[in-house]
């Protein structure tokens, strides 16, 4: 029973990633694409967690953590580029 439930959840996560990919390609504005990429990262992370439950292993936990960190840093870099046009500033003007 729980196994079927996990497989259904995995299929729904794949569907969600496919729908979000449509938003990445179509997305009218750049902030839409940045948020869609962040959502893909979170969905992928959840899918990896479900795969690790299905396979009954702890080997994917580091992959989940690293994916979360990289999605976070990537979103920050995208938003900084959209807002200011430069990713890393030479000298801040505050």
């Amino acid at each position: 029973m729980i196994h079927t439930l996990l497989l259904v959840a995995l299929a729904l996560f794949s569907l969600s990633i496919a729908i979000t990919l449509y938003r990445v390609i179509k997305g009218p504005t750049m902030p839409d694409r940045a948020i869609a990429l962040d959502t893909i990262g979170v969905n992928l992370l959840s899918a990896i967690a479900i795969v690790s439950i299905v396979l009954q292993t702890k080997a994917y936990l580091e992959a989940i953590l690293i994916l979360g960190i990289l999605a976070f840093i990537g979103t920050i870099a995208f938003t900084k580029y959209i807002e200011r046009g430069v990713v890393i500033e030479r000298k801040s003007d505050r």
Partner: peptide, 15 residues
Amino acid sequence: ASAIVLLYLANDIET
């Protein structure tokens, strides 16, 4: 290295 890059993103190079 990603931690150091996050520091560069949140602040600036000179800081």
